[in-house]
C-alpha cells in the first residue's frame, strides 16, 4: 500500500464576492498516494483550480485541513510554503510561463538555483531533465524560438528538474494541438512511471482524461465521483 502524500479533510474554501461569499470548495475529502497519475475534472467554476491552488500551497482553506508532504498548508507561513513548493512541488501551467530573457537551460536551471546546488550538479540535472523531454539540443535557445509543444516540454523539464514528489498541472494541453498534446502527455506518463512522481491534473480536456488512472469529478465545489480507471485503458 502506497503512502498518502496529499490529504484533504473537510476542506471548504469561500471567497468574498461583493457583500456576500462564493463557496468554491464545499467540505471536500480526498487523498492522493505517491506515484498516482490523477486528475481533478469538472466544468468551469467547479473548484478544480482552487483545489489545485490549495494543494500547491498557493492558497489555504477557509475550513478543514490540507496536508501535503506531511505539512498542514494552513499552518505554513510565506517562507515555509515557498520551501514546500521549491523542494516537493512542480507546476505546469496552461501557458508555459517561461522567462523570455533566459535560455531554455537557464529557465530549467532556475529552480535549482533556489536550492543552492553547485554548478556541476545543476548542469547535470538540467541536461538530464531536458533529455527526458527530448530537448537536449535546444538548451541554448530562447523560449521565443520554440514551438508551442517544445515550450510546454521545457515547462515539464523545469517542473521535473528538482525531482519533485508532486507535479501539479493546470490544463497543460489547452494551448496545444492534438499531436503535441498526446506527445506531452506520453512524456509525463513516462516520467510518472520511471520516477514515481505523482501527477495531478486540473482539466476538462478529453485527451488528458484518456491518460488518467484516476479521475476526481468536482461539481459545485463538491466531489461527485472518485473514479479509478483500469491501467489498460490508458496504455
Amino acid at each position: 500500500m502506497k503512502e498518502n502524500i496529499i490529504t484533504i479533510e473537510h476542506v471548504t474554501k469561500r471567497y468574498p464576492v461583493g457583500e456576500g461569499e462564493f463557496t468554491a470548495l464545499n467540505d471536500v475529502n480526498i487523498q492522493f498516494r505517491k506515484g498516482e497519475f490523477a486528475g481533478i475534472v469538472g466544468p468551469s467554476g467547479s473548484g478544480k483550480t482552487t483545489l489545485l491552488n490549495i494543494i500547491g500551497s498557493l492558497d489555504s482553506p477557509t475550513e478543514g485541513k490540507a496536508v501535503v508532504m506531511g505539512k498542514n498548508i494552513s499552518e505554513l507561513n510565506h517562507k515555509d510554503s515557498a520551501l514546500l513548493r521549491n523542494l516537493h512541488l512542480g507546476f505546469i501551467f496552461q501557458v508555459y510561463n517561461l522567462l523570455p530573457v533566459y535560455t531554455v537551460f537557464e529557465n530549467v536551471e532556475f529552480a535549482l538555483l533556489l536550492q543552492n546546488k553547485t554548478v556541476t550538479e545543476r548542469k547535470k540535472a538540467v541536461m538530464e531533465s531536458l533529455e527526458w523531454v527530448g530537448l537536449g539540443k535546444m538548451a541554448n535557445k530562447k523560449p521565443s524560438k520554440l514551438s508551442g509543444g517544445e515550450g510546454q516540454r521545457v515547462a515539464i523539464a523545469r517542473a521535473m528538474v528538482k525531482r519533485p514528489e508532486i507535479v501539479l498541472a493546470d490544463e497543460p494541453t489547452a494551448n496545444l494541438d492534438s499531436a503535441n498534446a498526446h506527445a506531452i502527455l506520453k512524456t509525463m506518463k513516462t516520467l510518472n512511471k520511471e520516477l514515481n512522481t505523482t501527477f495531478l491534473f486540473s482539466t476538462h480536456d478529453e485527451k488528458v482524461m484518456g491518460y488518467l488512472e484516476r479521475m476526481v469529478h468536482l461539481e459545485d465545489g463538491k466531489v461527485k465521483q472518485d473514479e479509478i480507471i483500469e491501467a489498460k485503458k490508458t496504455e
Partner: peptide, 16 residues
C-alpha cells in the same frame, strides 16, 4: 508581476 508569479511557483519566497 508575471515574472514574480513564475518565480513564486518555482518556490522562491516572497521576501527573496
Amino acid at each position: 508581476y508575471y515574472e514574480f508569479g513564475i518565480r513564486l511557483a518555482l518556490g522562491e519566497s516572497k521576501g527573496h
